Amino acid sequence: MSYVDLHCHLLPGLDDGAATYDDTLRHARRLHAEGVRDVACTPHVKRDEFPGVAVREIVERVAHAQRRIAAAGLAIRLHSGAELAHADALLLPASDLERIAQGPADARWLLLECPFDGIDDDFALAAARLRELGFGLLLAHPERSAGLLAGDGLARLRPLLAHGALLQVNVCSLLGNHGLDVQDAAVRLVREGVAFCLASDGHPGSREQTLQLGFHLLLRAGASSTQAYRLTQANPRLLLRDGVTRPLFDVEQRALAAAA
């Protein structure tokens, strides 16, 4: 197995993830041992809660962490990114957004955090702004948004998906760590083929599940081994290599049509 994790708070001392480089290296050793070979470092860009995260420093911090990990003999490639809050997505200049985008130059994309309070008009406006600026979207943990199934959350997401946004589900959600409603939502997104990838949303020291566990949780949730492979390896690797491109939009639209 060669897992690709697009959502991990591995950089130390920035947010609620790793506190120190010792924590970073300890978690990196676990990732290496469990077959995770590519990791996107995605500190929160969320000024209300983490005002100390400087967008312009993230790339340099990732490079430093990569040197420390390589020196420890660990076969992990780090990728620079961020978990972008929708309030910040409405305010940050395009130049800062480009600094935290991932993918190739002609198909850049951003990891946009779905709000825990639910999918609302401000979130839709943020997604629209990013799309107008030319960025593709990977929506982080939509299953954790209030009212995704019981309310109108999923219906509010469908127009975004029709415009090419993709969904990322968390390992801990499938595990049931955020309650049965969140677990049910995560399982439904997987079973209906709407989820495009699985990520750990790892927080060394507090939330340490990796994609190795996620692969088996997908099988338990009813995914085939082929789908589990795609969600944990092929699809996230495709996003790193090719970005969010029109063929991916078409794949997502077909999945939505099948789930409707």
Rank of each mutant, 00 (worst) to 15 (best):
D5G: 09
C8W: 01
L11I: 08
L11T: 01
D15N: 13
G17I: 00
A18S: 13
T20V: 03
T20H: 12
Y21A: 00
T24I: 06
L25W: 01
R30V: 13
H32A: 14
A33F: 00
V36G: 05
V39D: 04
C41I: 03
T42M: 06
V45K: 04
V45M: 05
R47K: 11
V62D: 02
H64G: 00
Q66N: 04
Q66P: 08
R67V: 07
R68V: 14
I69R: 03
A71E: 15
A72W: 02
A75Q: 14
I76M: 08
R77Y: 00
R77W: 00
S80W: 03
G81D: 05
D88H: 08
D88C: 11
A89H: 02
A89V: 09
A89M: 10
L90N: 10
L90I: 10
R99F: 01
R99N: 01
R99H: 07
G103I: 03
D106P: 10
D106S: 12
L111K: 04
F116S: 15
I119E: 04
D120N: 15
D121L: 13
E132T: 08
L133C: 10
L137R: 04
L137E: 07
L137T: 08
A140M: 02
P142Q: 06
S145I: 03
S145D: 07
A146D: 14
A150M: 07
D152R: 14
D152C: 12
L154G: 02
L154D: 05
R156D: 09
R156L: 14
A162P: 12
A162W: 12
H163F: 08
H163R: 15
A165R: 06
L167K: 04
V169N: 03
V169K: 01
N170W: 01
C172P: 12
C172F: 13
C172Y: 13
G176Q: 09
N177F: 13
G179L: 04
D181F: 05
V182L: 11
Q183T: 03
D184M: 10
A185M: 10
A185Q: 07
V190K: 01
V190E: 05
R191I: 09
R191Y: 03
R191S: 09
V194C: 04
V194S: 02
A195L: 05
F196K: 00
C197P: 09
L198K: 04
L198W: 05
G202V: 09
G202Y: 06
H203F: 08
E208L: 02
Q209S: 14
L213Q: 11
F215G: 00
L217D: 00
R220P: 03
R220A: 10
S224Q: 11
A228W: 02
A228R: 01
R230G: 00
R230P: 01
T232N: 04
T232M: 06
Q233V: 07
Q233N: 03
A234N: 07
A234R: 14
L238S: 09
R241Y: 03
R241P: 05
R241W: 06
V244C: 14
V244H: 08
T245R: 15
F249Y: 12
F249E: 11
Q253S: 11
R254M: 13
A255H: 11
A255G: 13
A258G: 09
A260H: 14
A260V: 11
